[in-house]
Design a protein around this nucleic acid. Structure first.
Lengths: 142, 142
DNA sequence: AAAGCCTTCACCCGAAAGGATGATTTCAAG
DNA sequence: CTTGAAATCATCCTTTCGGGTGAAGGCTTT
């Protein structure tokens, strides 16, 4: 966060410097221009960040509660299950084979196999049926 | 972090190049103030949005669960699933392997395999995970 | 810059699961 | 008594899974 802010600042400084240089070379006009540019840049950077937050927030508002299921994110975190792994878990619970999941997620079979293996370790099970069973108990999936 | 620096650098380079080029080619004079402002504004708005995107994440959801199960014997009948097959189905849903089910029911592995095969035919599925999924939908098992 | 996850993909090997078919025994119903 | 469904077990063969290992690239954090 701080680094990004610093980088923004540095970028602005460099930009202003460059513009000033250009102006010197070609216009040799009034020096107030840089201030306009800097102000505009800062303003629009803030605006952009705000817009970015807005946009992502909208994306996060993807609240989906089906019937009577509440996602237990705490447990998911505790077990260290990643986003992708959880995704694989969901499809797995729907009865898809590894190959089918691979097709659905546009990755290779090997990748899905890796995810499932990691899932089994994290869930402390050794078969997909057990994984599904346990995941449901923990409210990791509907 | 490297990426951020690189992107900023590239953006600045392109910007400077463009300004210089345009200046050379067309307006040999100023009057480009508004143009500069517009370019800066657009560029930094984009960067801000991008930064906003990478700075945000997280989400929360909470609900509750209810679980009342009513055995659907009618469906079981309709599908012609026998008592033994249903028994196998129940253990299957608990994550047991065919061998484990065989041990639990004091029958051979082959017998369990026969039961599961028949179950898959009757449930019109081809994998045990699908069978479990479907059996739950039909309230054949909790 | 370095250390650490996440994601992706690969290869190998053995175990489990699934499909097809056939056979025996038991038991209830026609 | 004959028929048929259910339950049992078997063999053969193919596909899917699961486990182990390694590795490359990206992003985050320190």
């Amino acid at each position: 966060m701080k680094k990004i802010i610093l980088i923004y600042g540095a970028s602005l400084a460099v930009l202003v410097f460059l513009l000033k240089y250009l102006e010197y070379q070609f216009f040799a006009k009034d020096l107030a221009l840089e201030f306009y540019l800097a102000v505009i840049a800062i303003l629009f950077t803030g605006l952009g960040i705000w817009a970015g937050f807005r946009l992502t927030r909208k994306k996060v508002v993807v609240v989906k509660m089906s019937a009577d299921f509440v996602f237990n994110e705490r447990e998911l975190d505790r077990l260290g299950i990643s986003k992708r792994e959880h995704e694989v878990l969901e499809w797995m619970a729907k009865g898809l084979s590894n190959q089918e999941i691979a097709d659905k997620l546009f990755v290779s079979l090997n990748t899905v196999k890796t995810h499932t293996s990691n899932l089994f370790l994290k869930l402390e099970v050794s078969r997909r049926t057990q994984a599904i069973q346990k995941a449901k108990e923990l409210s990791l999936i509907p």
